[in-house]
Design a protein around this nucleic acid. Sequence first.
DNA 1: CTGTCACATCATCTTCAGCTGATATCAGCA
DNA 2: TGCTGATATCAGCTGAAGATGATGTGACAG
Lengths: 97, 97
Amino acid sequence: MTVVAGLLADPVRARIVRVLARGPACVCHLVEDLDLKQPNVSNHVRVLRHAGLITGENRGKFTFYHLNHVMLDTAAAQLSELAATAREHAEARRDCA
Amino acid sequence: MTVVAGLLADPVRARIVRVLARGPACVCHLVEDLDLKQPNVSNHVRVLRHAGLITGENRGKFTFYHLNHVMLDTAAAQLSELAATAREHAEARRDCA
DNA sequence: CTGTCACATCATCTTCAGCTGATATCAGCA
DNA sequence: TGCTGATATCAGCTGAAGATGATGTGACAG
């Protein structure tokens, strides 16, 4: 979860992920949709790919990136579980030394 | 979601949140549990409080912090929805210009 | 095999966030 | 009132990460 949070913490990466949620796209799409410089996009894509949140598929001259929805689901489940734990222990008391 | 992600992106803040998920705690607890300096903890707590992820309750000399589990649940739901969107459009095709 | 296009990588700069020591504030108690 | 302990705030340093221009690489067209 912390890993995914770290990835989505950057606003540019969050936007990239949202674009990819609407379907696979290549770098040129991201550059155009998000109005960013190409090296900037490539750098962020590199981070996301290295972390496993997206995967690259070579299609000729282009590289299409796919979002790993399983990883997102796992992170969501962990967040949800954390919330459940907090709800359970909301009234717990703890002494100060 | 991006807000919560930004908060949990820092490993120290993620640990603080996990401690608070086990029940309310004051700064002295966090300092001891996480083996951190007090100003460091206060700074992170300040960020979390300002974002609304935790709330402070004054109890005499101490300040107990409570985790906002609703905010966590909301973030989890948004993540889950993003994953669902990605699953739906996983096979979408998009042309390059 | 040469040019072009999509993308990756590099070097550099700049900005920002976290850590820390010092200090301020504020509540409770003698 | 004066002291002590818990927490907040401040100033300064340092390291990490993002943005950008220049350049490398690899595939396709001609």
